[in-house]
Simulated assay, not measured.
Amino acid sequence: MHKVSLPLGMRDEFGIQVSKKHQIEQSLEIFLQQHEFMRIDTPILEYQEVFADYDLRQQRAYRLLDNNEVVVLRPDLTLPIARFLATNNFSLPRKLYYIGERFKIAKSLSGKYNQMTQAGVELVGYPSLKAELECFMIINCLSRKFLQGKVRIELGNARFADAILNSLTDDTQLKQEIKNQLYKKNIPKYQQLISLFALNDQTDFLKEWPRLFGSASTVLRKISSFKLPVKAQQIITELTQVSQWVQKLPEQSVLLDLSVAPPQSYYTGITFKGFSDDISDYLFSGGRYDHLLENFQKKGEPAVGMGIDLELLTKTAELNVSVSKADILFFEPEQLNEVVKICQKITNLTLCLEDNLQDAKKSAATRNVKLFCIDKKGELKIVN
C-alpha cells in the first residue's frame, strides 16, 4: 500500500484559508506594482554555495545531491536574488518583490511547518534611508488594511553590538560569546563575561544593556545617560531620527531593541521587525545589507530587504472571504457549443455534471441555487 501521509512539516492547503491567502497575495502584488516594484521568481533548488553567508546548520536546510553537487531547497529568498543580480546584466537601482516557498526544518515540537510561503521586497542600489522608510510605509499600509493597525515596528541595528564590544577588546571569540549570551538573554552567563570589564567606563552601560528594549522614547531616554563609543553613538543618533520619522506614520507605534540579534549575519545597518501583540512571532522582518552582493561579485551594492510571513499574515488578517454561489446549468454533451456562448455572457453559472435532469434538480435543491438548461433552440431557460 502506498504511503499517503505527508512528510513531516509539510502541509496541504484548501478551502477558505487558501482563498484568503491568495486574496492577500493579489492585494499585495497590486500594491507593490503600483509602487513600481518588479516581480522576480527564483528556483526552489540552489547550489549550497549560494547560501555561504547563511547558517545552514542552524537553519537545518534540506540538502540533496545533483550530479555529486550539493543543492538545497532554499531556506532564504534574499540570497538567490543576490545571485541573480550578480550573474545577470541587470541595471540598478531597482525595486524587486517576490512571493515563493521557503524550506527549513523546524525544531522538534515547535509546532512550526518546514514549508512556508514568504513574500518580500528588495530595494537594491539605494544608499538613502528612504529605502528603509519605504519598507516601514509598506508595513504600515498592510497593518491598517489587514490587521486594524495593530502591527508595531521594532528597530535595531546589526552593528551596534560590535560598535560597543570593539571598544572593549580585540578578542574575537570573547566578543562573539558576549553577543551570544546577550541575544539569548542568558543574564547570569552574560554578567560573568562582562565582569572582565568591571573597571571600564562602559561598566554601567554593560549592566543595563540586556534591558535596553521597549518603547523607543523609553530606551532612548535610558541610553542618553551613558557615554558611548563614537560609532555606537552615531548609530543611536540614526535610530533616534528614524524612530521619529516612523512615528509619523498613521497609527504606528515604534519600539527599540539594542540587544537583539540581526536576522542574518549579512545585515550591516538598521534592522526591523513588525509584530502584533496577538501573536508570538513576527510578521515582517528585514533591514539593510550593503555588502550582500560581494559574495557573488567584486563590487557590493547598497540594499534593503524585507520578508513577509504570508502564512502568519493569512492566519491573523481580519479579512472576510465570500464564497460565491453560482446557479447551475444542465446540458447535454451535444450542446457544448451553446454552453460556451451562454457562459461567456452569464458569468454566474457553473456546469452541472449530473447525467440526468432529475439528479440535476436534486443537486440544485441541495445547494439552494437555480437550475437552468438549454432548450432545442439553444436558448437558456430555468427549470421549474
Rank of each mutant, 00 (worst) to 15 (best):
L65I: 06
I382L: 12
V339S: 03
N348C: 04
L228R: 04
K130E: 12
Y97M: 04
K95Q: 11
L319T: 02
E294V: 03
L196M: 04
F103C: 10
R159M: 14
E154A: 05
I164K: 03
R221S: 15
S253N: 15
L133C: 04
I328L: 11
Q173L: 12
N200T: 12
Q115K: 07
I346Y: 13
S195Q: 14
S253Y: 06
S253I: 06
K377P: 00
S280A: 13
L371E: 02
A82I: 09
Q59A: 14
K248A: 12
E354I: 01
K376H: 11
K325A: 02
F226A: 10
I81C: 09
A82S: 11
A364E: 09
N114P: 00
Q181I: 01
T78Y: 06
D170N: 14
K175H: 07
V369T: 10
N200G: 11
T314E: 06
I279V: 13
F51K: 05
F90T: 15
V71H: 08
E122R: 07
D171F: 01
N320K: 14
N348T: 11
K341M: 15
C343F: 02
I194D: 02
G120R: 00
K104I: 03
E177F: 03
M116R: 08
Y98A: 12
Q23N: 12
A261M: 10
V18N: 05
N114Q: 10
R367M: 12
Q247K: 13
L212P: 12
E294H: 09
K207S: 04
N368V: 10
K325I: 02
D277K: 13
D201C: 00
K227H: 13
F275L: 05
S27Q: 15
Q191G: 05
P7N: 08
I178A: 04
R102H: 03
L174A: 11
K107T: 08
P188I: 04
Y126K: 07
N356M: 01
A86S: 15
P127V: 02
N114M: 04
L6Y: 08
V242L: 15
A360P: 00
L336W: 07
P302W: 05
K370P: 04
C373Q: 12
Y113N: 14
V339R: 07
K345A: 14
L258E: 00
Q59N: 15
E36R: 09
N166D: 13
D278E: 14
Q252D: 01
R39P: 14
T268A: 01
A198W: 12
V72C: 10
Q191T: 10
E25R: 12
E177Y: 01
A161Y: 03
E318H: 11
K362A: 13
E177L: 15
A119Q: 00
A317F: 10
V72E: 09
E338A: 14
R144M: 01
V383T: 00
E251R: 11
Q264W: 00
A131N: 02
D281G: 05
L220T: 08
F103P: 02
W245I: 14
S363C: 10
S276Y: 00
E208A: 15
E154M: 08
M137N: 06
G378K: 08
D201I: 01
D55R: 06
T117M: 11
E25F: 09
L329G: 05
D76Q: 08
Q26S: 13
L349S: 01
V72K: 05
A86G: 03
N67D: 10
P75I: 09
L293A: 01
I279S: 06
K130H: 03
F275H: 07
R367C: 02
